[in-house]
């Protein structure tokens, strides 16, 4: 595409030789066919959910199984949306994910900066203690943490769901490693101009750290949006549940109505799928970035 005309990209990838090879060899035709088939197979469950969701309820259990209906309808979507709780759970998920992401970024950036760029008594062992926290699986803590939330009166509250998720030692670790790599000269220059540490962080370090901040933010948001176990433990009131928890525990109107169940699944899948469609590159590099560094 456009890359072929820019000399820099051309020098690196050598497109003059590569592009025609793809077009001609029969091997690449097979390769593309296999790749497309695999991708379709991988999408099949999602497509099947969509296909089921637009069937009239009576047709969903028809034998033999058919992919397409002759009478597509949005009835199932209308019924699911009319119940309202799905949208409430989605709103709860949004509130909690934003809260978790914002708090994680603020807390972890401050902490990582403190560990990377400031020297204070006890820094070494404090950082070691924080990093050791990476070894503690959150799953181990559900029972004592629930008891603690009970004592603090935070069961069935947004804070109760969000706060334990904010403690992400991995993110401190990832951010610190990035901050470590920022040459001190930049900060020293700012400090000469009389900037304090917070100022240096805000106007020197953070602007240079956009990719890692985006990565941490995206990783945290996706994680919080899809987190199941802790929100599942921390909520019993359906009005406070997040999307995965509400969908997974509250029964009822959907019952054995597969079109409605799949409509609910499709609606619930949409927000992040749409975000993923538009921000694929950022999400891919963000998640791969944190995954590799963490």
């Amino acid at each position: 595409m456009a890359a072929t005309t820019t000399p820099r990209a051309g020098a690196r990838t050598g497109p003059a030789r590569r592009a025609p090879r793809i077009r001609v060899t029969p091997g690449s035709a097979v390769l593309y066919a296999v790749a497309a088939a695999c991708a379709l197979l991988w999408l099949a469950p999602l497509l099947w959910a969509v296909a089921t969701s637009v069937k009239p309820e009576a047709e969903t259990t028809a034998v033999p199984v058919r992919w397409l209906t002759d009478n597509p309808t949005t009835q199932a979507y209308a019924s699911v949306l009319a119940r309202g709780d799905l949208l409430r759970w989605m709103a709860n998920s949004a509130i909690i994910s934003v809260l978790v992401t914002a708090l994680t970024l603020v807390l972890c950036v401050l902490a990582a900066y403190g560990f990377a760029k400031c020297r204070f008594p006890g820094r070494g062992w404090l950082f070691a203690v924080v990093v050791a926290g990476i070894l503690v699986p959150p799953q181990v803590l559900i029972v004592p943490l629930f008891a603690q939330m009970g004592l603090m009166g935070l069961v069935d509250t947004y804070w109760g769901i969000a706060l334990p998720q904010v403690v992400a030692p991995v993110m401190v670790f990832v951010l610190k490693r990035f901050f470590d790599g920022i040459p001190a000269a930049y900060e020293d220059a700012a400090r000469m101009d009389g900037a304090g540490p917070l100022r240096v962080l805000w106007s020197v370090v953070l602007p240079m750290s956009r990719p890692v901040l985006a990565a941490v933010g995206i990783f945290t948001f996706v994680g919080a949006w899809n987190n199941f176990l802790w929100p599942f433990v921390a909520t019993t009131d359906p009005a406070m549940m997040t999307l995965p928890v509400g969908l997974g525990t509250v029964q009822g109107a959907y019952g054995l109505q597969y079109a409605q169940t799949m409509a609910a699944a499709v609606i619930s899948a949409l927000p992040l799928l749409v975000v993923f469609l538009f921000f694929q590159r950022q999400i891919v590099s963000g998640i791969a970035g944190v995954g590799i560094k963490g």
Partner: peptide, 20 residues
């Protein structure tokens, strides 16, 4: 409505223990 049996009873107990 919760799923009959343990899922219901567990939510019941946890909700009551949580006080809300």
């Amino acid at each position: 409505t919760y799923l009959w049996g343990d899922p219901f009873y567990t939510k019941f107990a946890m909700g009551a223990a949580g006080g809300r």
